[in-house]
Amino acid sequence: MDLSALRVEEVQNVINAMQKILECPICLELIKEPVSTKCDHIFCKFCMLKLLNQKKGPSQCPLCKNDITKRSLQESTRFSQLVEELLKIICAFQLDTGLEYANSYNFAKKENNSPEHLKDEVSIIQSMGYRNRAKRLLQSEPENPSLQETSLSVQLSNLGTVRTLRTKQRIQPQKTSVYIELGSDSSEDTVNKATYCSVGDQELLQITPQGTRDEISLDSAKKAACEFSETDVTNTEHHQPSNNDLNTTEKRAAERHPEKYQGSSVSNLHVEPCGTNTHASSLQHENSSLLLTKDRMNVEKAEFCNKSKQPGLARSQHNRWAGSKETCNDRRTPSTEKKVDLNADPLCERKEWNKQKLPCSENPRDTEDVPWITLNSSIQKVNEWFSRSDELLGSDDSHDGESESNAKVADVLDVLNEVDEYSGSSEKIDLLASDPHEALICKSERVHSKSVESNIEDKIFGKTYRKKASLPNLSHVTENLIIGAFVTEPQIIQERPLTNKLKRKRRPTSGL
Rank of each mutant, 00 (worst) to 15 (best):
N247F: 02
D2V: 04
Q126I: 05
L82M: 03
T167E: 10
L63T: 14
H41C: 01
Q126W: 10
I31Y: 05
M128P: 10
K32D: 00
T190K: 10
L182M: 08
R131K: 14
K32V: 03
P173F: 09
G275D: 01
L159M: 15
F107T: 03
E84T: 15
P145Y: 13
I125T: 13
E141G: 08
V162W: 03
K32G: 06
R7V: 13
A134D: 12
N106Y: 11
L73G: 03
I125W: 12
S114M: 03
Q126K: 12
D185N: 03
R7T: 04
K175E: 03
H41Y: 00
D120Q: 10
E75L: 03
L138Y: 15
L138V: 12
I89C: 02
P58G: 11
S72A: 13
K55D: 15
D189K: 12
Y130E: 10
E111Q: 08
T150F: 14
V8W: 13
N113H: 05
T176R: 08
N132E: 06
E85K: 10
K50H: 15
Q139H: 09
R133D: 02
I15Q: 00
V154T: 10
S4R: 10
V154A: 07
Y101E: 11
P115G: 10
S184A: 05
G129S: 10
Q54V: 10
E149L: 05
D120M: 14
P142E: 11
F79A: 05
A108Q: 08
Q54D: 15
Q74D: 03
M18I: 04
S104L: 04
S80K: 12
G129D: 07
K55Y: 13
L73A: 02
I68M: 04
I26E: 09
A92N: 00
K38S: 11
V11Q: 01
S140P: 07
Q81V: 06
K65T: 15
I125E: 09
L30K: 02
F43S: 12
S127D: 13
F46R: 07
Q60P: 04
S153W: 05
I68T: 13
F79R: 01
Q126H: 01
Y101C: 01
H117P: 01
N66Q: 02
S76R: 06
L159H: 02
S104I: 10
